[in-house]
């Protein structure tokens, strides 16, 4: 879906006639669809996915316009004009819905960042997936956690036990994503090659729903040929 989407965005930018409302409406709907998809993907994937910077920015900018509209018109709500009243109810309701989706998406990410901090910090690939704000959040949070552990007990422990990314003794302290976590997926695009799960070969049929380990479909989740459910 991501690739289709870029095309449409380009089309839209190329529109000579800015009054082509239909395209804008379509774009708005696609953004909602995409936001719902990335939200559920983020909720269900064991790893942290790439931050959807452009999508979030587009939605936020429309959201700001809408808030402004409400500020200009809200005083009329006790007005007898039923039409305005209904209009505001609809606009506020939608605002609440979008706000919820963004909130849940962002907080899902923070919760994963908290859990996987030490792992993320060791991997350039994962650091790239964070937004600027998330990186600052992660570093600050990590710093205060280390400070807390150090002040409470680590500083007074034997020297060999003072680190936080200890991998000795057979147990790694670094929490990794559970790559083999079983997930439910729906196949949304044609996938030509079959995939290998354990020692079985599986063909993923379009529109099919499967339960399988995340590692087997990770790349298809990244390029959105499959979505998590």
């Amino acid at each position: 879906m991501a690739t289709n989407f870029d095309d449409i965005l380009a089309d839209f930018d190329n529109q000579v006639n800015p009054n082509n409302r239909l395209t804008l409406t379509k774009l708005k709907r696609q953004d909602l669809q995409l936001l719902q998809t990335v939200w559920i993907n983020e909720r269900m994937a064991p790893e942290l996915l790439t931050y959807e910077h452009e999508l979030i920015e587009r939605i936020l900018s429309r959201l700001r316009d809408q808030v402004e509209f409400i500020e200009l018109n809200s005083i009329d709500i006790q007005n007898t004009d039923k039409d305005i009243k209904l209009k505001l109810v609809v606009i506020e309701s939608e605002l609440g819905r979008v706000n919820f989706l963004l909130r849940s998406y962002l907080r899902t990410r923070l919760s994963k960042i908290d859990r996987l901090t030490v792992f993320i910090r060791t991997s350039d690939e994962f650091i790239q997936r964070l937004s600027e704000e998330e990186t600052i959040y992660m570093e600050n949070h990590f710093k205060s956690l280390v400070q807390l552990y150090n002040n409470l007990f680590l500083n007074t422990m034997p020297e060999q036990l003072q680190s936080l990314d200890d991998e000795s003794g057979g147990i790694s302290m670094i929490e990794q994503p559970d790559w083999n976590k079983p997930v439910f997926i729906r196949v949304v695009n044609d996938i030509k090659e079959s995939i290998i799960v354990g020692d079985e070969e599986v063909e993923l049929e379009k529109e099919g729903i499967y339960l399988l380990r995340y590692s087997a479909v990770k790349n298809f989740v990244h390029n959105r040929d499959v979505v998590l459910i």
Binding site: L63, S93, G96, R97, N99, F100, L102, R103, L106
Partner: peptide, 11 residues
């Protein structure tokens, strides 16, 4: 523009 501390239950 977002109320990030708001409820995590859908409105």
């Amino acid at each position: 523009e977002l109320d990030l501390s708001g409820s995590l239950e859908p409105p």
